[in-house]
Design a protein around this nucleic acid. Structure first.
Length: 346
DNA sequence: TCTGGGGTCCTAGGACCC
DNA sequence: TCTGGGGTCCTAGGACCC
């Protein structure tokens, strides 16, 4: 018996939930995102079914573009409460197994398990999730979260895959650095400029060089990823959010200063109400402005004392807003709150 | 591809203090 | 005031993830 980390990833989660609710749409191209109006909104697709993908539609694509590529597609609005409910049903299934469960968003969880046969356990969990929720998932098995996370991607669709220290090099060494969980396009490009193209290159890189280029924490961490290392502790205590935000991209850019102020007031009221509902106090307010065509800037105000008071938060937000030069059209406004964190306990 | 919304963590520079 | 070293807080931005 030994410890394993499992990563469960629901397959095509949002699309699968929508097709459960609208069985008549099975087999048709479906695109989900925003308010579901591809002609008016500036939002992007959260997901697209296989049939829509065949027309070149993919998640992240503007709904307008999706409509152009696939005029026959059915567009559905995003419905977060429905996804939360479906997610809760899945997580309840997981809790019936003798495993530690760490929820990682709507459609993912890490499991800590002690067993001789992680494949059999994973297969049993997979079937239980399918039987009780109608949703397919894939499960990755690893020595740590990083390996398990990559393994679940290899397991798709609806499968189980093991990636451990024993198979890491043969599986990963030849791949591009952005195959690692935590390295995106930007970092991959910077690494390539240093002559580091593959996971093997990165694993062999000098930690000092990486620290000089990427910082004292991030640099060495990149090499650590390339060696297949990662966090191996499954945390079952509920996550305490660090903050909360609301933002809106307007269907048409705002050019009127009063409209901008009003929108910031409305967003701040939302954020304040959210904080009160969550029972949290706010230490800092950040206002985000995205100017046309796409230049994003932030200004923040630290509060004299943590609060959820509407007037105090509004004053802070308007102070931050006042530090912008608002002569250009505004595409997006956002208001973010940093929450006061409870004192750490020993 | 004229580029959402909601998060997390890290970095760098400046202010301020001793 | 030809001027060190360290700590901490604050701000703004960058990168990544789902």
């Amino acid at each position: 018996m030994r410890d394993w980390i499992l990563h469960l990833d629901l397959d095509q989660f949002i699309a699968a939930v929508e097709l459960q609710r609208h069985p008549e749409l099975r087999g048709r191209p479906v695109v989900v995102g925003g308010d579901g109006d591809p002609t008016r909104s500036r939002t992007v697709a959260a997901t697209a079914t296989y049939e829509a993908r065949e027309h070149g539609v993919h998640s992240g694509m503007p709904l307008r573009t999706a409509l152009r590529r696939c005029p026959d597609a059915v567009f559905l609005p995003s419905d977060p409460p429905a996804y939360e409910a479906a997610s809760a049903r899945v997580m309840a299934v997981l809790r019936d197994f003798p495993v530690a469960v760490e929820i990682w968003g709507w459609d993912e969880a890490f499991l800590g398990a002690r067993t001789d046969d992680p494949e059999t356990l994973a297969g049993t969990i997979r079937r239980a999730v399918l039987d009780r929720t109608g949703l397919d998932c894939s499960i990755g098995i690893g020595d740590n979260k990083h390996q398990a996370k990559l393994a679940s991607a290899f397991a798709k669709p609806a499968g189980v895959h093991r990636l451990t220290g024993d198979t890491w090099a043969e599986t990963m060494n030849h791949r591009a650095t952005d195959a690692l969980w935590g390295i995106g396009a930007r970092t991959a490009r910077k690494l390539a400029a240093l002559g580091i193209h593959t996971v093997a290159d990165l694993a062999a890189a000098d930690p000092g060089d990486l620290a000089a280029r990427f910082g004292p924490t991030n640099g060495p961490w990149l090499r650590y990823l390339a060696l297949g290392k990662g966090e191996a502790e499954v945390v079952t205590t509920p996550w305490i959010p660090r903050g909360h935000s609301r933002e809106t991209t307007f269907p048409r850019d705002l050019t009127d200063a009063t409209a901008v102020t009003d929108a910031v007031r409305a967003l701040t009221a939302q954020v304040a109400a959210d904080a009160r509902e969550a029972g949290r106090t706010v230490t800092r307010v950040t206002v985000k402005v995205r100017f046309a065509p796409f230049l994003t800037r932030t200004r923040q105000t630290t509060l004299a004392a943590p609060t959820t008071d509407d007037a105090a938060l509004t004053e802070a937000a308007l102070t931050a807003l006042g530090r912008f030069d608002l002569t250009r059209p505004v595409r997006l406004l956002g208001v973010a709150a940093d929450y006061e964190m409870p004192a750490a306990r020993a």
